[in-house]
């Protein structure tokens, strides 16, 4: 098997920066963080063995310096500030979960961390814009004129959805978002 390209890819990928190489002071460690993660549904990070199986199968860990194992270790030590500043880059492919010998679900942990980020630092801009689309269009993305034309040309209704149903659906979505407090959480204005 020719692995020359694989080797090249490996070299240009980011090396794992071990936590041991980074100086940590006691004040950085927030023990409540572990409980906050459990409350958000991320599971108990203390069961992690630091074996690194998750990192080995993670498509994002292969390409960036955000290694899953390191993120979990930082959670175990309560390094909240550091963890929350890692970018929103998990593909939620759930390979880590399939390979974890300790029965953890690192993808769910990342989801819990995102919940904490949204509540404490605010949502990233694309979360606001896509939530706005769903609230106002019923759909995550907007349609372009080009696609409206194409739809007609290939024999579909020009508009993807029947307007009569759509306005009711959008009303439902707005009502639901207001009831769960999602509008306030994300900072979108749904009108009255």
């Amino acid at each position: 098997m020719d692995i020359s390209h694989a080797r090249k890819e490996f070299i240009i990928s980011e090396k794992e920066r071990l936590l041991e190489e980074i100086p940590i002071v006691d004040e950085e460690c927030n023990r409540d963080f572990i409980r906050a993660i459990i409350e958000m549904g991320g599971g108990d990070v203390q069961v992690c063995l630091q074996c690194g199986n998750c990192t080995g199968v993670c498509p994002v860990s292969l390409k960036t310096e955000n290694k899953v194992r390191n993120i979990i270790k930082m959670c175990q030590m309560g390094l909240k500030e550091r963890v929350l500043s890692t970018p929103w880059v998990c593909a939620t492919c759930h390979r880590c979960y399939e390979h974890c010998p300790a029965g953890m679900n690192p993808a769910e942990l990342i989801i819990a961390l995102r919940h904490i980020v949204v509540r404490e630092l605010g949502p990233p801009p694309f979360v606001v814009s896509i939530s706005n689309n769903v609230a106002n269009l019923g759909q995550a993305i907007e349609i372009s004129d080009k696609i409206l034309d194409l739809r007609k040309k290939i024999g579909l209704n020009e508009k993807p959805f029947d307007e009569r149903y759509r306005s009711k659906a959008i009303m439902d979505i707005k009502t639901i978002m207001k009831a769960t407090g999602y509008d306030k959480l994300i900072g979108i204005d749904l009108g009255d």
Binding site: G41, W88, T92, I111, R114, H115, V118, P123, F126, V127, I130, S131, V134, G138, Q139, A140, F161, D162, Y165, R166, K168, A169, I170, D172, I173, I176, M177, A179, T180, Y182, L185, I186
Partner: peptide
């Protein structure tokens, strides 16, 4: 299913508020 809306997209809703995600999906 003309009444259907976005599923809703898990990368946004399941990541920011699981309750909202679940209610919109249940709808």
């Amino acid at each position: 299913m003309p009444q259907a809306t976005c599923c809703p997209v898990p990368g946004i809703f399941y990541s920011s508020d699981k309750d909202t995600w679940l209610v919109l999906a249940a709808r």
